[in-house]
Each structure stands twice: as structure tokens, then as C-alpha cells.
Nucleic acid binder design. Structure first.
Length: 654
DNA sequence: GTAGGGTTAG
């Protein structure tokens, strides 16, 4: 066996070119074969070997074909050997071993055989060896084929090496004609986009003589990923023939960019265009419905899934997405029904269900399900641990949470991320161990992000610790200078501690930065599925008089049960009566009163909020669930609160 | 050989 490395040049292509090009013009590939009986027989044999290779399921079968091939004197037949190399790499045989030996026995490899080797190295690595083969192929005077470049671009995209990609791009132009090839162009766009050079991808697209729906979709997706839905849309509208993948890219793009309405509109247009729907389209659509959080859409999309033949029972992808959606729409029971009905479950199904339980304050159910999962073959991933740690933290299970955290890397090979540290800080913080939580943040081996400090700040609110709150807030002001919530939180913590001078200081900071409080909104769905929006302090609802009356009635009954307004939940510098009035105009209270008027007495009231529920409203909801005898579910921007018989599922920690 | 996909914490 010859030593390959000595025969092959190791000079990088940019040094070989362009001089090398002039020395070795690519030889034209010969397609014409003189016809004869011998040729005919040989051709039949080649075809037989190829189809034998097609059905090979393991290495020994391939070896048999190889032996057969050698017996018939086809050791130089590039056509069959190319197939042999492809089959071997497809079966996962290291290209550096057996395929390389096969290749070395060929005196004059044709471009396809070279490319099969290059492709093998681009898939299995190292990419340097793929490039080495390319260089040698060129030095041997062999002209590449378009697939050679596609394989190389794919490899560059996978390892995010744009410099290499650019060198190969230059090659496609130098070697001649390949830059204009459709497949080469498409993989080139993909490479640039993956490496984060969208503009270069766009330039390739703009200069391509032939484009197909794949070229368009690649760019559309790239725009949706960076959040530029305007450019995505513009391209999409110009796309002459829109197929299912292209439509799906738009639907999913809107969903991923928090524009659920547009996602739904786009889907309806897609249906109007007579384009079919598959599981991937449904996932995007379901995610949009989850964001809308209304049961009307939840039922609508489930119906579509069933009718398209991708029901949750059969399809694990759709099933998992539906679990998440129902959880986010406040229908935990429905989520669990979907979960139980699924024939096949995977780590997504389990994690979504565990997160659903955790989000709704059902800590024990979440932890039980986690243990049930461990009895299966399915291994937990990073998201599963987020779910189960969140559950522990809401149930105050400090020791169990610590134990889980300690085992995640050891037994499950999941390295704790800043997000997992967020859960741990939350766990310790909620349990009142603020110093320990602070110590954990200060000693964690990776950088703390806003989430970690935010968890600490939230714990300081629960336990009224303005000093540690100040430390956390200072970090947050650095990390997230424009995030209004942190200022509001710190100001509230000072207000609860009666430190009015500090409250003024924080307010001044907000003013200087030009930050304004987000207006508070609540939404409630009537029995007809119409969604009503309420803004704090708003009096212009058409049924405002009735709402006000219902709210006053409720207030009177609650006061008879001992409810007293929590005045700390309103601005400190107003009079007591004014503060009481403001508290009563909070949007979730208006929404609750309207729901009492407009829904059936036995049904659960569901209210969605855009900001965190205040303490006064929380107490108010607890009481209301008792005196009105209703189940109330409130989704704020953090989690779900289930109010029933005067108690909340969050255990008054939120 | 090329394009669309799910769960994430304050």
C-alpha cells in the first residue's frame, strides 16, 4: 500500500491557485463508450453490483459485493467503486479506513469517486482532509463536479468556517461555470447564512442565474431567524411558486417572532392557496396558538391537526406541541389528557408535561412524572431539569432540588447552564436562604446572566430584603439597563420596607433613562370565545357601569370576610383613599368582574396578564374564588395561578 | 446532494 500523504499535496488551495490551474486544466470527462458485447455484459454486471450495494445493510454484505467486484476484474471501475464508498460511509464506516484503501487501489479516479471520498470526510471529519483530497484531485488534473462543491459548502456551514467557505466560493468561480449551478448556489447560500453572513448569502442569491424555491426558502428562513420579518415577507411575496416548506417557513417565522396573529393569517392564506399541511407546519401553528393563550384557538388548531392526519395520539411532534399549548392556555387537564393518550412519547413530551405541571404550581405531579420518566429509556435533557428544578423550588423542596442539581452532570451528562443556576437561586431564595443564594451566584463557575440576578431580586421581594436586592439590582442595571421591570421591582421592595428616600432615588433613575412603566393589560375570554381587553384605570368599556357595580359588590362581600386592601401595592405618595381607588382599577380586577358577569357560573374563569400580578390582586383573587365559588386561573408574565376555595396553587410565592 | 420543526428559567 502506498503512503497517501507522500503522494498527496498538503499545500493549501489558496497557495496552489491560480498558478496550478494553468498547469492542470481539468480533463473533460468522457461519456461516450464504444458499444460491444463485452461492454454490454460489463454494463449489466455493473448495474447488478450497484443494486446489490443499494440493499446492503451492514459491512460484511458490502465486503461480499466488493469481493464479487474484484473477481470480475472491476477493481478500476469508478462507477461501482463510487457507489461502494458512498454505501460504506452511509453505514458509518470510517472513510479513513476501508473506503480509503479501496480508493488507493484506483489508478485514475474519476471526479465522482474523488467526490465520494471528499463527501465522506465532510460528513465524518476532519474537514481538512476533505480539503486535502480536493487539492489532490485538482493537482491530479481532475475537474470537480457540482456535488464536490455542495459537499464542501455543507461542511463549512457545519463547522461555521466562513473563511474556508470563501476560498471554496472563489474556486467555484475559478474552475468555471460552477458558481452558476443551482445546487452549488443553494449550498453556498446555506453556508453563508449558517455562518452568520446573511448579506453574502443574499448577494449569491441575487447573482444566481437559476433559482428555485429552495434558494428562496433558505433566505426567507435566514431573515426570520434574525427577526427581520419585513424582508422575509418581501422575499416570500416575490416567490413565484410557493410550496409547503416555504409557507411553513413563514408561519413558523411569525410564531418565533412573537407575532401569533400574523402566523394564523399566513396559515389561512396557505390553506386558501390549496397547499397541504404537515406536522412541521402544525408545530409552528400550535406555537402561535400557545402564544395567544385562548382556548378558542387551542381547540381550532387541534381540530386542524386531527383532520390533517397528524393527531396527538399518533404524532409525537404534534402531541408534544399540544401539551405545551394547552399548558400555556391554562388547560392543564387537557394537556395531561393529550400526554396520556400519546402512543409514543419522547423527551419533548415528558419535558413539556413536567414544565406544564411546574408552571401551574403542581410541583408533586411534576416530580412524580420526572421519576416515571427515569423508569423509561428516555433520558432527561437540559430542559427537563429546568422543569423539575422549577417544580422543586415552588414546592420548597430545597434538599431534593439540590440533590437533582448535583446529579444532573454526574449521571445524566447535562452540564448546568446559567438557566439551571437561575432555578437554584430561585430555589434557595424562595426558601428564604438569601445569603446562600447570593453566595451561589458569586461562586458559580459560569457567568451569571440577567435571569440569575433577577431570581435573586424576586426572592428579595418575597422575603423583604432591600440590601441584597440592591446588590442584585446593581448587576441587573448593568446587564439589562433598559428593562423596566427591575426598576419597578427594586422600587417596590424599598416601598415595602418604608425606605422612601431609596424609592425616590430609583424613580429618578427611571426618569433619567426615560423609562416608562408598561401599561398593564388583562384579557378574558367570554363563553363565545370573544376576547375582551382591560387596561388599568380604564373606564371606557361599553359595559363599564355593570362592571363597576359587580366589582363593588364583590369588594363588599370580601371586606365582610376580612379583606383589606394592601396599600403597599399602590404608589406611596398618594392619599389612602386614592390608593384604594387605584387598587380597585387594576386590570385583572376589571377582567374578573367582567368574567363574573359574562360567563357560566360553573366554569373556570381564565385571565391573562402582561405583567406580574400584584400582591393586592393576589389576595383579592384568593378571596374572590371563595366568596364567588369559582375557579379562577390567572396567567401573568411569570406563571399560572390557580385560585380555588380561597387558596392559590403558587402557595403565595410568585 | 440543497429549504421548514417542538419544550427554557427571573
Amino acid at each position: 500500500m502506498q503512503n497517501l500523504s507522500r503522494r498527496f499535496s498538503t499545500v493549501p488551495i489558496h497557495k496552489l491557485l491560480p498558478q496550478q490551474l494553468h498547469q492542470h486544466q481539468p480533463q473533460p470527462t468522457r461519456f461516450f463508450i464504444p458499444f460491444s458485447e463485452y461492454q454490454q455484459k460489463r454494463k449489466l454486471l455493473e448495474h447488478k453490483l450497484i443494486s446489490d450495494l443499494d440493499v446492503c445493510a451492514n459491512l460484511s454484505q458490502v465486503k461480499e459485493v466488493h469481493a464479487h467486484l474484484l473477481r470480475h476484474g472491476l477493481s478500476q471501475c469508478c462507477y461501482v467503486l463510487t457507489k461502494l464508498v458512498r454505501t460504506l460511509t452511509k453505514l458509518g464506516v470510517p472513510v479513513d479506513a476501508y473506503p480509503r484503501l479501496v480508493f488507493l487501489q484506483v489508478k485514475y479516479p474519476n471526479p465522482f469517486l474523488w467526490t465520494a471520498m471528499i463527501r465522506g470526510y465532510t460528513v465524518q471529519g476532519p474537514i481538512s482532509e476533505a480539503l486535502n483530497f480536493y487539492t489532490c484531485m485538482r493537482s491530479a488534473g481532475t475537474g470537480p463536479v457540482s456535488f464536490t462543491f455542495s459537499a464542501l459548502f455543507k461542511a463549512c456551514g457545519d463547522v461555521l468556517d466562513v473563511n474556508l467557505g470563501r476560498q471554496i466560493h472563489a474556486q467555484t468561480i475559478l474552475v468555471g461555470g460552477f458558481a452558476a449551478d443551482l445546487y452549488v448556489g443553494n449550498t453556498m447560500i446555506d453556508m453563508y447564512v449558517k455562518c452568520g453572513f446573511l448579506d453574502c448569502g443574499r448577494k449569491v442569491f441575487d447573482e444566481m442565474p437559476d433559482r428555485d424555491v429552495v434558494s428562496w426558502t433558505e433566505l426567507i428562513v435566514a431573515y426570520t431567524k434574525i427577526g427581520d420579518m419585513g424582508s422575509a415577507r418581501e422575499l416570500f411575496e416575490g416567490l413565484p411558486v410557493k410550496d409547503m416548506v416555504a409557507w411553513t417557513a413563514m408561519v413558523t417565522g411569525y410564531a418565533q417572532n412573537a407575532r401569533p396573529r400574523d402566523a394564523l393569517d399566513c396559515f389561512e392564506r396557505m390553506q386558501g392557496a390549496g397547499v397541504g399541511t404537515d406536522e412541521i407546519t402544525l408545530v409552528g401553528l400550535i406555537s402561535a396558538c400557545a402564544q395567544l393563550g385562548a382556548s378558542k384557538y387551542a381547540n381550532w388548531v387541534r381540530d386542524i391537526a386531527e383532520k390533517s392526519g397528524f393527531g396527538p395520539t399518533e404524532n409525537v411532534l404534534v402531541g408534544s406541541a399540544l401539551i405545551d399549548m394547552y399548558s400555556k392556555c391554562g388547560s392543564l387537564d387537557e394537556a395531561y389528557k393529550v400526554f396520556q393518550g400519546m402512543k409514543e412519547r419522547n423527551v419533548f413530551s415528558y419535558s413539556s408535561m413536567i414544565l406544564g405541571f411546574a408552571m401551574h404550581g403542581r410541583a408533586n405531579a411534576a416530580i412524580e412524572l420526572f421519576h416515571e420518566m427515569l423508569t423509561t429509556e428516555i433520558r432527561p435533557n437540559r430542559v427537563t431539569f429546568i422543569g423539575v428544578l422549577t417544580a422543586c423550588s415552588h414546592a420548597g423542596m430545597v434538599d431534593q432540588g439540590r440533590q437533582l442539581f448535583a446529579t444532573m452532570e454526574k449521571y445524566y451528562n447535562v452540564v448546568p447552564s446559567a438557566d439551571h443556576y437561575t432555578c437554584m437561586v430561585d430555589l434557595l431564595g424562595r426558601a428564604g436562604r438569601l445569603e446562600e443564594a447570593l453566595e451561589l451566584v458569586e461562586t458559580m463557575p459560569i457567568a451569571a446572566h440577567g435571569g440569575v440576578w433577577g431570581a435573586l431580586l424576586g426572592a428579595c421581594r418575597i422575603h423583604g430584603n432591600p440590601d441584597i436586592a440592591q446588590i442584585a439590582a446593581n448587576h441587573l442595571f448593568e446587564l439589562e439597563p433598559d428593562s423596566i421591570g427591575n426598576y419597578v421591582m427594586l422600587s417596590n421592595i424599598y416601598a415595602s420596607a418604608g425606605r422612601w428616600a431609596d424609592v425616590s432615588r430609583v424613580r429618578k433613575m427611571m426618569k433619567e433613562k426615560g423609562l416608562k412603566k408598561n401599561p398593564a393589560y388583562s384579557w378574558v375570554e367570554t363563553k363565545k370565545g370573544v376576547i375582551h381587553e382591560f387596561c388599568a384605570g380604564e373606564t371606557n368599556h361599553p359595559e363599564y357601569a355593570e362592571i363597576k357595580k359587580a366589582l363593588d359588590d364583590l369588594l363588599n362581600r370580601l371586606q365582610a370576610h376580612g379583606y383589606q386592601p394592601n396599600l403597599n401595592s399602590a404608589a406611596y405618595d398618594l392619599g389612602i383613599e386614592e390608593r384604594k381607588r387605584i387598587l380597585m382599577s387594576h386590570s385583572e380586577k376589571l377582567a374578573l368582574a367582567y368574567a363574573l358577569l359574562s360567563t357560566d357560573s360553573g366554569s373556570t374563569i381564565k385571565i391573562m396578564k402582561n405583567i406580574r400580578i400584584c400582591e393586592d390582586c393576589h389576595v383579592f383573587m384568593c378571596g374572590a374564588s371563595q366568596v364567588a365559588g369559582r375557579e379562577i386561573v390567572v396567567r401573568d408574565n411569570m406563571r399560572f395561578h390557580h385560585f380555588s376555595n380561597g387558596k392559590c396553587s403558587c402557595g403565595n410565592f410568585w
